[in-house]
Nucleic acid binder design. Structure first.
Lengths: 277, 277
DNA sequence: CGAAGTTACTTTATGGCGTAAGGAGTCGCA
DNA sequence: TGCGACTCCTTACGCCATAAAGTAACTTCG
């Protein structure tokens, strides 16, 4: 996990909310050479680096290079890499939809939110590696939270429950997104497909743990009871073969888990309706 | 997220399952100086470093130093830091309980599992930073999975559903653990308590976003509807003041979210029972 | 007994990282 | 015409993982 924002709190908040802009309203450069960069340009470039090459490739040197500058040039605009990460995190959250059609009820709304949030994290997997505790308190991050809470408010549950449900849903979606993102990253980094990876490992597993089914009976029972492992690719149902094994698995977990969560919320709503309120 | 295990698959699996041991049965040192270290000693030292100082402090140098060696000495036993991480991950999973009393029904069993797994991750927060896709295929990691699946099997749901529920529960528990772990880490790294952090930020937020309640109406409504933010510490209810704000919040999310999830599973069980097994 | 071969571990080196320090050039304003 | 503010650069430091090569300890074979 990458930590962020240890620096001066005032400077950090000013940057996040772009509160320094009014000081220089349009084109009053003051003394010194005209700035060639800007916080926005740096944040955009940094997001591009992280999107394309992953969090591990996000270095001050890489961002500077993309802008035709050295790493040190960035420090004129941004106090540290941590602060830059905060800015990236907030900026990218502007992509999240804020409006959902309420006519389908809260269940449809939350389903849409979950799907959009999953896809958002798959577009920007590095977001999952930014620490969640001591959250980034920027305008777009708050907007995303506000949207989720608005959707949850439609359940009619009390405020304390809403706060916890927001956390639960977020954990779930982030967990699912993380699995897919890491699978993709692993496939890209090693050049080995999920299927090839699993094939090699399961063969070795048989060598090294011939007593697997005895040691892990529940696991073995589940394996035989559910779909076969990828080395036996089902030839029918064409078209979905392009999606890698681990990713398909993760998306099914997402769909099923979301249903379970929403069923649980429905139970809470019924219960709250029954006991007054 | 830290990635692991890109190297030679055979060597990696042999290390995880300690399949090289038979080659040297007890005390037949062969030529060369007697080894002063062992894979186990290195893994234990590495876990100690990660537990005490966090994943960021886990360097080959640090592990070697703890064993009175240089960083390079470790490479005699372990092919790379990635493999060491896999070994750490699997070794630490030996701590997870594998037996649960089934007399309380599946709901009690899963609640116990979730609590134990949460506490496990809080003891070893660095585990959360090991990639989950392409999982570590070691004996103890499998044992942990087997335990969860065994508990889920008691619901009577079909194998495919079990697999997805296992993923959903894991995502949830890991998400909750991550929030707590990161909050602790942030507090330790900055020396600033959650309360102090939030107090400073909310004051700045008022300066920089005076229209907060208008911009984020749902969030504002939830704030006023639920417990007040920490700057107003409730003086009553003594004893729980020692637990930091963000951690208390995360634990409440854990309890509430787990109930919602289990309610959702209960609904699935009822539904499966209604539509013929 | 001594040489050869094998192994544990060290030293040194390479190319990465974030960022502190100091210098060079550019511009608005006095 | 400077002065001071400002952007951006070069250099440097101490980290990191790990490749390569050297040293010393030990067993085994001649």
């Amino acid at each position: 996990m990458v930590f962020a924002g240890q620096g001066d709190a005032r400077r950090s908040m000013s940057l996040l909310w772009r509160a320094d802009r009014p000081e220089r309203p349009e084109r009053r450069p003051g003394p010194g050479p005209r700035p060639g960069l800007s916080v926005d340009a740096i944040v955009t470039a940094a997001i591009a680096v992280a999107d394309e090459d992953g969090m591990a490739a996000l270095s001050m040197r890489a961002v500077g290079e993309r802008l035709g500058r050295t790493a040190m040039a960035l420090y004129t605009y941004v106090p540290s890499k941590s602060e830059l990460l905060d800015l990236m995190y907030d900026a990218v959250h502007a992509e999240l939809p804020t409006e959902y059609d309420g006519s389908g009820g809260w269940r449809a709304g939350l389903t849409g939110w979950a799907r959009d949030t999953l896809e958002f994290h798959l577009r920007h997997p590095w977001v999952l590696q930014v620490s969640q505790a001591r959250p980034v308190l920027g305008p777009h991050a708050y907007a995303g939270l506000d949207t989720l809470v608005r959707l949850l408010t439609a359940t009619g549950l009390e405020a304390r429950a809403l706060r916890r449900l927001a956390g639960t849903l977020t954990h779930f979606v982030r967990g699912c997104a993380g699995t897919v993102a890491e699978a993709r990253q692993a496939a890209a980094a090693t050049g080995e497909s999920d299927e090839a990876w699993w094939f090699a490992r399961s063969a070795l597993l048989g060598e090294v743990a011939p007593d697997f089914a005895d040691r892990y009976p529940s696991l073995a029972a589940m394996e035989t009871g559910s779909a076969p492992r990828p080395p036996a690719p089902d030839p029918g149902e064409g078209g979905e073969a392009a999606v890698p094994y681990l990713e398909r698995e993760a998306r099914e977990t997402f769909d099923a888990g979301l249903d379970v969560l929403l069923d649980g919320i429905e139970a809470a709503v019924r219960h709250a309706g029954a006991t007054g309120r």
